[in-house]
């Protein structure tokens, strides 16, 4: 069965969705990603959807689920590169994906992930173990 490849870059996982996804493929991606996050102890997930021509409620929900599951596993998710037409349509559809962080492109998405990861590290270094909750 088709799979969407997941790349690892240090503490981060990178996914580029390039195909017109059918629902099962989206669910497989959700499974694969959550597995990989816990396997490698990833701190961030970047999903590039710049080549996606539509995001319907199912794909939108899958993205939201991935973000929530990643958060539970202590990883931040950022969705990058949503096309204007896709964004307009999603809003009209009634989905504003409030739980998802977005960025214009891979570069600013990575910047965001690095910043949040560093912020998390600082607590560990300066605050000591006891302040972590």
């Amino acid at each position: 069965m088709d799979r969407i490849p997941i790349l690892r870059m240090g503490n981060f996982l990178l996914v580029t969705i390039q195909v017109d996804m059918h629902d099962r493929l989206a669910l497989t991606l959700q499974d694969d990603l959550t597995n990989r996050i816990s396997e490698v102890g990833a701190r961030g997930v970047l999903i590039d959807i710049s080549s996606l021509e539509i995001v319907d409620s199912f794909i939108g929900r899958t993205l939201a689920n991935i973000a929530s599951m990643a958060r539970v596993l202590d990883a931040q998710t950022v969705v990058v590169g949503m096309q204007p037409a896709v964004a307009i349509t999603l809003v009209e559809l009634g989905m504003s994906l409030p739980g998802i962080r977005t960025a214009l492109n891979v570069e600013s998405g990575m910047e965001y992930l690095q910043e949040t990861a560093e912020a998390g590290m600082e607590i560990g270094v300066y605050g000591g173990d006891s302040t972590e909750d």
Binding site: D56, F58, A85, I88, T89, L93
Partner: peptide, 17 residues
């Protein structure tokens, strides 16, 4: 237009599902 195409295709996807 691209936006209209996207709207129609998205609606088709929702209804087909």
């Amino acid at each position: 237009s691209l936006v209209d195409q996207t709207k129609i295709v998205t609606a088709a996807s929702e209804l087909a599902r």
